[in-house]
């Protein structure tokens, strides 16, 4: 019988998926002038020590969703290395949501720490 992923692995995938949208907002927020998709993928890998590393192509459906939710705006710029690329910037609503989520994330980790004691 084929064995599925362990409980631990499934849990990691679920939690990573959950925090990924927040992480993307955090990275875009960090770049006032905007950042392109490839840059976001690089930062996700580098600044989280690979913890939030994902298949890079799966980042784009997430970016599209955040755009649809009007949390991100996009403009196109020429790229020296190939086709033109989209640069993502946080909208006013995106900034508000990011601040709210930052408070929520802080609260969650604080309560989880308290639960361990």
């Amino acid at each position: 019988m084929e064995k599925g992923p362990s409980f631990e692995d499934s849990w990691k995938i679920e939690i990573r998926r959950g925090v990924l949208q927040y992480a993307v907002l955090a990275i875009v927020n960090h770049h006032e002038k905007g950042i392109h998709g490839y840059g976001i993928a690089r930062e996700l890998e580098g600044r989280t020590d690979g913890l939030l590393q994902m298949k890079e192509g799966t980042l784009y459906p997430i970016l599209h969703r955040l755009r649809k939710e009007r949390l991100l705006n996009v403009h196109t710029e020429k790229s020296e290395s190939g086709p033109s690329r989209k640069v993502y910037v946080l909208t006013g609503e995106g900034d508000r949501v990011f601040r709210q989520l930052t408070i929520l994330v802080g609260d969650i980790f604080e309560k989880l720490e308290a639960l361990k004691k």
Partner: peptide
């Protein structure tokens, strides 16, 4: 990738993003 996605404007947009990403990474 295109074969697995619906034929829509949104898919075209996504494919454009992926193509751009591939060239950035490759270069």
């Amino acid at each position: 990738i295109a074969k697995l996605l619906p034929n829509s404007f949104e898919t075209e947009d996504l494919l454009e993003d992926l193509r751009s990403h591939i060239y950035e990474s490759y270069n």
